[in-house]
């Protein structure tokens, strides 16, 4: 890996890296066991933080929404607003941000640690391609766990919204449930899942890239983890915005 660090050089290096990872995906050998292990670890690490971070969002939307919808006497519609917001926007975006924070930073930190301790070199000397053995499993794992977590957080968001609206704010349960699916369709769920898959894959890639480029000992490991999270959060928000705009334009 190169030592120079201009933004242009980094972009080119990233494209190179992306191409190399794709090549590894198409051609063998694959380390499926290592991929499963990585998925298992990341899933365990992500489950609780992602759930804890996304669940309150449903409650907060319900909490702020109840007032406004009451003002206009349409509190029955609260649940359709909640469902739209959660299915399409908040669950996928926040779940991805949390996957970036948890899985992204831990992948980058792990690979970065291996790099500064010479373990990546050790792999290469033992003729095990580090790209195949450490980067690709992380990439595949993120690609898969992000949408899985999104299913969970969508459900959690709806439940917490329901809890706040119906149990605490005394919105009528029947109206809430009746209107819940009046505005959302299966397409919304698919859109959410597709976004998460896209973001998840990007998180895995960026984390692997930052990890492999780690230089400068222990401090470098911290920098790799940090820059991964910052870069991925920017990426998620920016891409998410353009996707929303595109979907609005397409009328989906």
């Amino acid at each position: 890996m190169s030592q120079r660090r201009g933004p242009l050089e980094a972009t080119l290096a990233f494209l190179d890296f992306f191409a190399a990872v794709l090549r590894c995906l198409v051609t063998g050998p694959h380390f499926w066991l290592e991929t499963l292990r990585t998925m298992d670890i990341l899933m365990r690490r992500c489950l609780i933080p992602v759930g804890l971070a996304v669940a309150p969002v449903g409650a907060v939307i319900a909490l702020q929404g109840v007032g406004v919808f009451r003002m206009f006497g349409v509190e029955g519609l609260l649940s359709s607003m909640l469902a739209t917001a959660i299915f399409r926007q908040y669950s996928p975006a926040l779940a991805s941000v949390m996957v970036a924070a948890q899985a992204g930073s831990s992948i980058a930190a792990r690979i970065g640690t291996m790099k500064v301790r010479g373990q990546i070199d050790a792999l290469a000397v033992m003729s095990v391609d580090p790209l195949r053995y450490v980067v690709v499993p992380g990439f595949i794992a993120c690609l898969i766990i992000a949408p899985l977590l999104n299913v969970l957080t969508t459900a959690l968001g709806l439940v917490s919204g329901w809890f706040f609206a119906v149990v605490l704010a005394r919105v009528d349960h029947g109206a809430f449930v009746d209107n819940l699916y009046s505005q959302v369709t299966v397409t919304d769920l698919w859109i959410g899942l597709a976004k998460c898959t896209l973001f998840g894959g990007a998180i895995g890639l960026i984390a692997g890239f930052a990890g492999l480029r780690t230089v400068g000992g222990a401090a470098g490991v911290g920098r790799a983890a940090n820059s991964t999270v910052v870069t991925t959060i920017i990426m998620i928000l920016v891409i998410d915005y353009f996707i929303s705009l595109l979907l609005l334009w397409l009328g989906v």
């Binding site: 930073s105 831990s106 930190a109 792990r110 500064v116 222990a218 490991v221 911290g222 983890a225």
Partner: peptide
Amino acid sequence: GAAGVGVATN
């Protein structure tokens, strides 16, 4: 060592 920094950051 370096792993500790990664864990703390994460």
